[in-house]
Design a protein around this nucleic acid. Structure first.
Lengths: 202, 202
DNA sequence: ATATTGTGCATTGTCTACAATTAGACTAGG
DNA sequence: CCTAGTCTAATTGTAGACAATGCACAATAT
């Protein structure tokens, strides 16, 4: 059976684009978002745009004031950033524990594929794509372990963390770290997997 | 200066109502939500309703399938529930640490007031209101410590946890536990506050 | 009889128009 | 010069109409 050709709703595409813009720093904190402007930019009406703004607000990337509008949220305070790191580690540690002995060959293929994307993007120097591939790699594990429920919880944390990095931190060891995670999962070595995660999430 | 009479947007009111319905069990898992139905029920158009559905979906209370609709999410698996409890404890522990020595008299007044609501609702047997007051009590602390950013993270966790209780667990020790939290905060005793939290969150 | 295709209905997704609210400029008065 | 008040333009919030999609059931063919 062929993998279902999933059609991505417009609102998700727009949300992805805006998330990238924010993480890449193109949309800086404090920047105000105009509904009509975004609507014309993406060639849709204001309806879907409002959906996207609501989503990103719930994810913490935007802040919305009633009857005033949405703007890009400020960066996290150091202490909150630490908390986010902690929570994210906790979630992903939970994930690898759950996944012990649960991954099929095709799952590892998917992980290898995502790591390949990461590596290639890194070599080319496309850091927005690097970040995307990185997030998808981890998301795969989280989704596999906890489904939509866990992803819902995890998503805001990652993006909020990522906002703070703003092209400063370039994980040059990312490839090796992700490889270590895969290897540990292949060996059902939870301890190593957890350690690799802790090293990768910072 | 008078406390600003804040006007609550319709979509927040509707969201609150639906959250209560879900937590109280009136809207059971698997139940499907009809946009037009909700619109007429609340006397608004479908626009605000769609906003609410998106919010609750992001909070994990609903699941939405594209072009099909939204329905009440299933209860958490035990292991995920444990993870949620863990994360919630972590967030609130962070909160009380941050709040040490930061609370003014009016803050304690607010906490006392919320505890009063909780107590009264409990005596009357209005368990929906008990839950609401309980959540607002904790929310006050979380908001005070981490603002909207932390609340955004915390909200989905609490509601998702609460879904699982469904009128089974009635915290008859709730009043004493909350009082213990307040007392510990008054004495700037983080250790006791943390312990009281751990006892209260389960 | 079974599988497949077609049709109708119900529901969600999107668009346009209008109402409500806000921020900012501008004016008048002290 | 500064403050308070009012007006206007821009933007968000809401409503209602239309388009697109999915699901259930009926019709048809093998």
């Amino acid at each position: 059976m062929r993998r279902s050709e999933k059609v991505i709703p417009v609102r998700d595409q727009i949300a992805d684009q805006l998330r990238s813009d924010i993480i890449s720093g193109e949309l800086a904190p404090g920047n105000k978002l105009n509904e009509q402007g975004l609507a014309t930019r993406f060639g849709v009406s204001r309806g879907p745009i409002r959906d996207v703004i609501l989503q990103l607000t719930k994810e913490g990337l935007l802040v919305t004031k009633s009857n005033v509008g949405a703007s890009v949220n400020e960066m996290l305070s150091p202490s909150l950033q630490n908390l986010m790191v902690d929570i994210r580690r906790r979630i992903e540690t939970y994930a690898v524990r759950q996944l012990k002995g649960q991954l099929a060959d095709e799952d590892f293929e998917a992980l290898d594929f995502l790591l390949g994307r990461f590596k290639k993007a890194f070599e080319v120097g496309d850091f927005t794509e690097v970040t995307r591939a990185d997030i998808e790699f981890h998301k795969f594990l989280v989704d596999k372990a906890g489904g939509q429920d866990l992803v819902n919880l995890w998503y805001p944390v990652v993006f909020r963390m990522r906002m703070n990095y703003k092209r400063i931190d370039t994980p040059k060891d990312g490839v090796a770290e992700h490889q270590a995670i895969i290897d540990a999962l292949r060996n059902n070595d939870v301890t190593s997997a957890t350690a690799a995660l802790r090293a990768n999430i910072r």
